[in-house]
């Protein structure tokens, strides 16, 4: 039975590693969605994967490579802070496509990179160890505290950008700090659950939660609930069906998103 797996020490560490990201990523995703910057999240995750592959070739720790690459992507993104929406989107798309191209070429030409590349793209949750769990716990604690500290300023800079500047706030600085949090979280999440699983957790739970929530606070709680429930179902379902975790999580979240969208349309009478 899949529930027995949760008592198996072999699966306890992977379970809690993924659970930490299932809590953190939907929270970050809500603020990314507010800024309509979901494409940047995918670019960060893909860049982190490329950074991990390069770190492996250089003999560096993979997580360090992923973090540095994602941080560089966040810094690059800040260059486009004041640009028009279309220019920003084009920059994120180029970063995403460029990172993907570099990663695939590394995987195709270097035998050592092949296995890691597949793990990064598909997710390797069941093979994560204590180091991944510690990194996930620290990341969730630090990023959660950072998000708590930045939350009001992020909302203020979005809804009252001129007022925010008038009281001495720097929109660019607040957004850059937030991007660093997102980049770090996505880099570490990518090492554990894979590029698309991390992206699915950051994008889909807030999408569902926004439709059904009457306040920002409730939307955060609902996004976390959707992320955690989908994650637990995916973790157990993948074990039970002997399938890779990443695609199972992605499909569960897409199913929830579609059902939520249909139910919401029926609810509002469209």
């Amino acid at each position: 039975m899949p529930f027995d797996a949760l008592l198996d020490p072999l699966f306890v560490q992977p379970f809690f590693t993924g659970l930490a990201f299932a809590v953190l990523l939907p929270l970050l995703g809500a603020y990314l969605r507010l800024r309509d910057e979901w494409l940047a999240a995918l670019a960060f995750a893909q860049t982190a994967a490329a950074g991990a592959l390069l770190a492996m070739l250089a003999g560096w720790p993979l997580q360090l490579g992923g973090l540095l690459a994602a941080a560089a992507a966040a810094a690059l993104k800040s260059v486009f802070e004041g640009a028009a929406r279309g220019v920003q989107g084009a920059a994120y798309a180029m970063l995403l496509v460029g990172s993907w191209g570099a990663s695939v070429l590394l995987v195709a030409n270097l035998p050592l990179a092949e296995r890691l590349g597949h793990a990064l793209f598909d997710g390797q949750l069941y093979f994560t160890d204590r180091d991944h769990l510690v990194a996930a716990a620290i990341c969730t604690g630090v990023a959660g505290a950072g998000l708590f500290a930045l939350s009001r300023r992020l909302l203020l800079s979005h809804f009252f950008p001129d007022y925010f500047r008038a009281v001495g706030g720097s929109v660019r600085r607040v957004h850059f700090l937030f991007d660093l949090l997102v980049a770090a979280a996505l880099a570490l999440a990518t090492m554990s659950i894979g590029v698309m699983s991390a992206f699915a957790l950051i994008f889909l739970p807030p999408l569902v939660a926004w439709a059904w929530s009457g306040s920002w606070r409730r939307s955060l709680a609902l996004a976390v609930a959707v992320g955690v429930v989908a994650y637990v179902l995916a973790f157990l379902g993948a074990l039970w069906l002997d399938q890779p975790f990443g695609p199972v999580l992605a499909l569960i979240l897409v199913l929830v998103g579609v059902l939520s969208g249909v139910a919401h349309r029926l609810h509002i009478g469209l």
């Binding site: 909302l155 203020l156 950008p161 001129d162 007022y163 500047r165 009281v167 009457g214």
Partner: peptide
């Protein structure tokens, strides 16, 4: 304090009036 005409789109955003004032 400064009020301007610039307001971001709010379609789909689950922020209520009380939360807006609290900001």
């Amino acid at each position: 304090s400064l009020q301007t005409q610039r307001q971001p789109p709010v379609a789909g955003v689950p922020l209520n009036g009380a939360e807006l004032l609290a900001l």
